[in-house]
Simulated scan of single mutants.
Amino acid sequence: MPALSPSSSETFTFDDDGLIPNSPLPLLLYRDVVRLAANAGQDLAKVFEEQFAINQWSGSWRNGVYPYHHYHSNTHEVLGVYRGSATLKLGGSTGHETLVQAGDVIIIPAGVGHMCIEHSHDFSVVGAYPNGMKCDILTGELCQRPQALERVKQVPVPDFDPVLGKEGGLRKWWPAD
C-alpha cells in the first residue's frame, strides 16, 4: 500500500451554537490524501479502510453523510471520501460549508456537527472511529445536551492520527490529556 499524505491540510474550530456543542479541538481536513493510489487504479475505499485500521481507527463502514445536522458525543470520527464530491456543513448551523471530493479525509472531533448539503450521485465515504468505538448520533435536541456535553469532555485524544499515524496531524493539533 502506498504511503498516504495530504497535499494540503486545513483546520476549523467551531464554538458551541447552543444546539451543537462543537469542540475546542480543531476539525482537520486533509486534501488529496490518496492521489497516488487513485492514479494506480486502486480501490480507494479499501486503501482508506486499511490505513485507518493500521492506525487503530476501526469499525469502518461505507456510506454517505446524513443530510441533517448531527454529531457524536462519545467518539471522534474520520471520513475518507472515496468517490464523488459533496458540500458539507461543518460545525452546525453557524458553521462552515466546504467542498470535499474523492481523496479527501475529514477528522471530526467528538461534539462537532456535520451534515451533507448536496452531493454528486456517486458520493461515498469510509467512516471509522478510534479503537472501533460505536458512535451515538445526536441532532442537537435540548434534552440530550447536558449528558452530551459531559460525554464530549470525556472522549480521549487518540494515540494515532488515522492517516499520519503517531506523528503529525491530530497528534500535533490536539493536545494529549
Rank of each mutant, 00 (worst) to 15 (best):
L44E: 02
L44M: 09
V47G: 02
F48H: 01
Q51N: 12
A53W: 00
A53S: 09
A53N: 03
A53R: 01
I54T: 09
Q56I: 04
W57L: 01
W57K: 01
W57N: 01
S58C: 11
G59N: 06
G59H: 05
G59P: 05
S60G: 13
S60A: 14
S60W: 15
R62P: 13
R62E: 13
N63F: 10
N63H: 13
V65D: 07
V65Y: 06
V65T: 11
H69G: 11
H70L: 07
Y71T: 09
N74H: 04
T75R: 06
H76R: 08
L79P: 01
G84E: 04
S85K: 12
A86W: 10
T87V: 15
L88E: 06
K89F: 10
G92K: 03
S93Y: 15
S93D: 14
G95D: 07
E97N: 15
E97H: 11
L99T: 10
L99R: 08
Q101N: 14
G103A: 12
G103K: 06
V105E: 00
V105L: 06
V105M: 02
I106F: 01
I106G: 00
A110W: 02
V112A: 09
H114P: 02
M115Y: 05
M115F: 10
C116V: 08
C116I: 02
I117N: 07
I117D: 12
E118S: 13
E118W: 10
F123S: 07
Y129D: 01
Y129T: 11
M133P: 04
K134V: 15
D136I: 09
I137N: 08
G140A: 11
C143R: 06
Q144D: 15
R145T: 11
A148D: 10
E150V: 14
E150I: 15
E150D: 14
E150L: 14
R151P: 03
V155E: 05
V157G: 12
V157W: 14
V157A: 15
P158K: 02
P158L: 07
D159G: 08
